[in-house]
Amino acid sequence: MKKLSPKKKSATRNARAEKRVIVLINLGTPKSTRVADVRRYLFQFLMDPCVIDIPYPARLALVGGIIAPLRAFSSSKSYREIWTEKGSPLLSLSEDLKEKIQARTSHPVFLAMRYGIPAIAPTIKAALSSIDNKGILHIIPLYPQHAMSTTLTVYREVQSALSALTKENDTLRNNVKVIYEAPFYNNTAYLNALAAQIKPYIKKLGTNNGYDYLLFSYHGIPIRHLNKIDAAQHCNMTTDCCNRRNAQAHAVCYRHQLIETTKAIEKRLKIPSQLVGITFQSRLGSNWLTPYTDMTVKMLPRKGIKKLLVVTPAFVTDNLETLFEVAIENKDFFKEAGGEKLTLIPCLNTEPRWINCLMDMIAKPRDFTAALETADRAFTYRTAAT
């Protein structure tokens, strides 16, 4: 065996000894179902310029004066429908996931929420303290597909927290390396986990004794969000832009990535394409990605679809949008339109295959920082231009 030089031995030892901390980041949740807590959460969420991307004065008037006060009451009622003894399902399930990951790695693992608590800034500070402010900070946004309102806003908030901490301790600049995990929409382990989660439900898909249709319901975004972070200026330039190869654009294109996720699951489970549909839920305004989930579930019974399966692959953790919007609200829409049965396939939550996928990410990170920096520059430039 070839011997390492003293210099290479030292580098190898340093690499092995380098400390690393993992921070899982999910969407967020109100502190409680109280109207005041829900209003506070909605205000923070919707005031994010990556979510409602209009000039600040107009955003403040819209969110602070109209949306948050009016929606707080109905959203509070919706949260009460899904709240458990442990509190928020999103938070409790995320905490369970963190604990299961921690049990399998020697690296410290932290959990933060983009909105609400545990907040990103204090979590990043605690995470860095756990490795004595030296080593690798590995950020894993828990979103399979990249979007301006998910992964990019996590990046911007983490960078803001790091900037503030660097002002307090300038040595962080040279002593900490930040790795942002890449979207995992096409990650083999993730796709295998998602396919395994869906498989038991589709054994009789398309038969008289089974479900008639499988709907992939993704979180909706405004169409302009696709263009706003597309430095390659590829998105929406043609009607088939998602199928025209452009690595730079597709690296940050939510629509392309969700299409790829759906096609990969169809292929793995050998589902006929005529039994599968893609829709988008949770719209807030016009000119969002279509078709809309609520309108689709109202229309499907007229096409003879009486038993419907719904999966929500934009999320890895069940939350208000899955447990209430799909499993309660859209189920009611479906039955009122003549449907017989709507079944929500649970998110991956703490499924062992999903945990294995995360362990693979920790062992072999895919650094997405450069793509995020490019998307953020495009976002900043186009925001300033409006």
Rank of each mutant, 00 (worst) to 15 (best):
196 A>I: 02
221 I>L: 14
194 L>M: 14
196 A>K: 12
178 V>D: 01
219 H>Q: 14
218 Y>H: 11
177 K>N: 00
206 G>Q: 00
209 N>L: 04
214 L>I: 15
189 A>L: 11
208 N>M: 11
185 Y>C: 07
183 P>D: 12
171 T>F: 07
215 L>P: 13
194 L>R: 06
214 L>R: 03
182 A>V: 08
179 I>T: 00
220 G>M: 08
216 F>D: 02
191 L>M: 03
172 L>T: 06
171 T>V: 06
219 H>G: 11
219 H>Y: 11
181 E>L: 07
183 P>V: 12
203 K>S: 15
182 A>N: 02
166 T>F: 04
214 L>H: 07
166 T>S: 12
205 L>A: 09
182 A>G: 06
201 Y>G: 03
173 R>E: 00
183 P>N: 14
183 P>Y: 06
210 G>C: 08
187 N>K: 05
217 S>E: 06
174 N>P: 02
167 K>S: 14
178 V>R: 02
205 L>V: 13
189 A>S: 13
214 L>A: 07
205 L>E: 05
168 E>C: 05
163 S>H: 09
183 P>Q: 10
186 N>S: 11
221 I>G: 06
194 L>G: 02
168 E>W: 04
209 N>V: 08
175 N>F: 03
220 G>V: 07
191 L>N: 05
196 A>G: 07
219 H>R: 06
198 I>F: 10
214 L>T: 11
178 V>A: 05
213 Y>I: 13
193 A>N: 03
177 K>T: 04
172 L>R: 10
169 N>L: 13
193 A>K: 01
211 Y>G: 05
209 N>H: 12
209 N>T: 11
203 K>P: 02
209 N>D: 13
213 Y>N: 10
163 S>L: 14
193 A>L: 01
177 K>M: 01
201 Y>F: 15
181 E>I: 06
191 L>G: 01
174 N>H: 14
165 L>F: 07
169 N>W: 11
202 I>F: 11
213 Y>T: 03
219 H>P: 13
190 Y>E: 03
216 F>V: 09
198 I>Q: 08
216 F>C: 05
216 F>P: 02
217 S>Q: 07
179 I>N: 00
167 K>R: 11
218 Y>D: 05
207 T>C: 08
194 L>F: 10
195 A>G: 10
220 G>Q: 06
186 N>P: 00
180 Y>S: 06
169 N>F: 12
179 I>M: 06
209 N>I: 13
199 K>N: 12
163 S>D: 10
184 F>G: 07
217 S>F: 10
195 A>F: 02
186 N>D: 09
218 Y>E: 03
219 H>V: 15
214 L>K: 04
194 L>S: 05
194 L>K: 08
